[in-house]
Amino acid sequence: MSTVVGHDGAPDHFENPGLPPHHSRMSDRDPRAAKRAERQVVVIFGISILASIAALVGYFTIPVGTTLASIRLSTLVLGVGLGVGMLGIGVAAVHWAKTLMSNVEHVEKRKVIGSDPEIRNTAITDLREGIEDANIARRPLLKGALAGAVALAPLPFLVPLIGNLGGDWNVGSFRHTAWREGRRLATDPDDVPIRAADVTVGSVFQVIPHGLPDEEHYLEEKAKAIVIMTRLDPSELIVQEGREDWQYEGIVAYSKVCTHVGCPVALYEQDTHHLLCPCHQSTFDVADGAKVVFGPANRALPQLPITVDDEGYLVARSDFTEPVGPSYWERLK
């Protein structure tokens, strides 16, 4: 290792800062090895492309029914396709860098920072040399494979998102649920209609619309329509204006879907009449219209208007009057 001494006697720079001797790779010495490595990279990119396509095909062709088996199969195909597609891009990029890109270590002498034309020209020259070292211009097949894999890989993420979340948030399935006037409240998952006389003070029921398990898209509809119902002493209820007939003798029903990010509100404190969401601790006061008393939720749980029919069974007066679920931007109040 030799040094160059400056005017003050201190080392100005090292001619060799201690880099180990460079050993060329097989692909550097043998054009056939380089071509073989290129084919390997293209094959890996091709696998990534096929996996992404398989994920898209699976999304559109595998029906998602109401059974766990169909949901599991669709999720498996989509997940494996996404995983292999993204993994293929990473593996191919690493193999490309290890076998085909330049691995020569260069030493650049430290210079005084400046912006004169000579330095700018040097920087442009270095960038061009870097592009040449990457062997991109001389390998159009690799460029095409890389572009195809990168272009297709995000589609399995975007297509389900667009397909499931497109449209107007304030109409259609996002605003309406399976509840309707006269539909009986039933226990979940037994689907047994509930009589008002069977609901005692302090008892809690997880409720679904009666007959819902027999309908198409049961799981999707249940996720929106699920309700938590309890009975309080009528004297403890703070009746909201315009909702005087939404409860029956102290029996109230609210959406079980938290208005923060949609977790199931499941914990009821009988003494305080508070409903607690276990995900982020949003707390709602059942006695006061399920208003938020703590946590990140910014609006009350939607209330289901209820009454009883001629046989004494609890029934809905109507659907929810506001969208259930998380308070997205169109739903903020």
Rank of each mutant, 00 (worst) to 15 (best):
T3L: 02
G312M: 10
E269N: 13
K35V: 10
L158D: 06
S24G: 08
V77F: 03
A153K: 04
K143Y: 10
P21W: 14
F174T: 13
S70Q: 07
L158V: 09
P323K: 03
L155K: 13
K224M: 08
I119V: 04
H274A: 03
R72E: 01
G312K: 04
T177R: 01
L76I: 08
R175E: 11
W179M: 03
L68R: 15
L332W: 13
V171L: 08
L304W: 05
V43P: 00
A137K: 15
I208L: 02
F45A: 07
E236M: 08
S115Q: 12
Y328E: 15
V5G: 02
E244R: 00
F284G: 07
F284Y: 15
V171W: 13
D310M: 03
Y313N: 06
N103T: 06
R29I: 05
D319A: 02
P140S: 03
S2G: 10
L56Q: 09
Q281T: 09
V201W: 09
G46W: 04
A145M: 01
D198I: 01
N298S: 11
V41T: 05
H274C: 08
P278K: 02
I131P: 08
L185K: 01
P21I: 14
D285Y: 00
R231K: 15
A137D: 15
H23C: 10
G6H: 07
F157C: 03
D214C: 01
K222L: 07
P20L: 11
L152Q: 01
S27G: 05
A10Y: 02
D285R: 12
P21M: 10
R110V: 13
E132D: 08
V204T: 01
V43E: 05
A134Y: 13
A145F: 04
H210C: 02
R29D: 07
W169Q: 11
R138M: 13
P323N: 10
P189A: 10
V104P: 07
V204K: 05
D288H: 09
V64G: 00
I162P: 02
E15F: 06
A92Y: 13
R29F: 13
Y254L: 03
D310N: 10
R331I: 12
T177I: 02
I306D: 00
L219W: 06
S24C: 10
I238T: 10
